[in-house]
Simulated scan of single mutants.
Amino acid sequence: MSDASHISHSCEDIFPARLELPRHIAIIMDGNGRWAQQRHLPRFAGHKSGVKSARMAVEVCANFHLDALTLFAFSSENWKRPRTEVDLLMNLFISALREEAASLHENNIRMRVIGDRTAFSDKLQKRIDEVETLTAGNDGMTLSIAANYGGRWDILQAARQAVTGNQGIDEEQFLRHLSLSDLPEPDLFIRTGGEQRISNFLLWQLAYTELYFTDTLWPDFDKSHLAAAMRDYAGRQRRFGRTAEQVEKA
Score class of each variant (00 low, 15 high):
43 R>E: 10
172 E>D: 12
104 L>Y: 00
147 A>T: 07
219 P>R: 02
153 W>L: 09
173 Q>R: 14
116 D>L: 06
91 N>S: 15
9 H>D: 12
220 D>T: 11
2 S>C: 05
94 I>T: 14
201 F>I: 06
203 L>H: 04
226 L>N: 05
142 T>E: 09
98 R>K: 15
41 L>A: 10
26 A>L: 03
59 E>I: 02
204 W>Q: 14
16 P>S: 04
51 V>A: 15
234 A>Q: 03
241 G>D: 13
76 S>E: 13
222 D>M: 01
224 S>V: 10
84 T>L: 14
173 Q>N: 12
154 D>E: 13
247 V>P: 06
235 G>M: 02
2 S>Y: 05
187 D>P: 08
139 D>T: 07
152 R>A: 13
143 L>W: 00
52 K>I: 06
103 S>D: 11
246 Q>M: 13
211 L>C: 04
215 D>N: 11
29 M>Q: 05
17 A>M: 04
145 I>E: 06
106 E>Q: 02
195 E>C: 03
121 S>M: 09
212 Y>W: 08
212 Y>V: 01
140 G>H: 01
201 F>H: 10
63 N>D: 07
203 L>P: 12
208 Y>P: 08
159 A>W: 04
176 R>V: 03
163 V>S: 13
236 R>A: 00
45 A>H: 10
235 G>T: 00
192 T>W: 00
103 S>H: 07
71 L>G: 11
34 R>K: 11
149 Y>I: 05
89 L>Q: 09
135 T>W: 01
120 F>H: 10
53 S>L: 04
104 L>D: 01
232 D>R: 00
81 R>M: 09
46 G>I: 03
92 L>M: 11
243 T>N: 07
182 D>K: 15
89 L>H: 05
177 H>M: 08
134 L>S: 07
12 E>W: 02
180 L>H: 03
72 F>S: 13
63 N>I: 01
164 T>D: 15
41 L>Y: 06
50 G>L: 08
241 G>R: 09
137 G>Y: 04
155 I>S: 12
59 E>M: 06
202 L>M: 15
145 I>N: 07
244 A>Q: 13
15 F>V: 12
43 R>G: 09
110 R>D: 02
93 F>N: 11
38 Q>M: 14
100 E>R: 02
104 L>E: 00
97 L>I: 03
120 F>D: 15
6 H>A: 11
161 Q>I: 03
17 A>G: 09
246 Q>I: 05
234 A>G: 14
28 I>N: 07
250 A>P: 03
111 M>C: 08
55 R>Y: 07
194 G>V: 01
30 D>Q: 06
80 K>F: 04
75 S>D: 14
129 D>K: 13
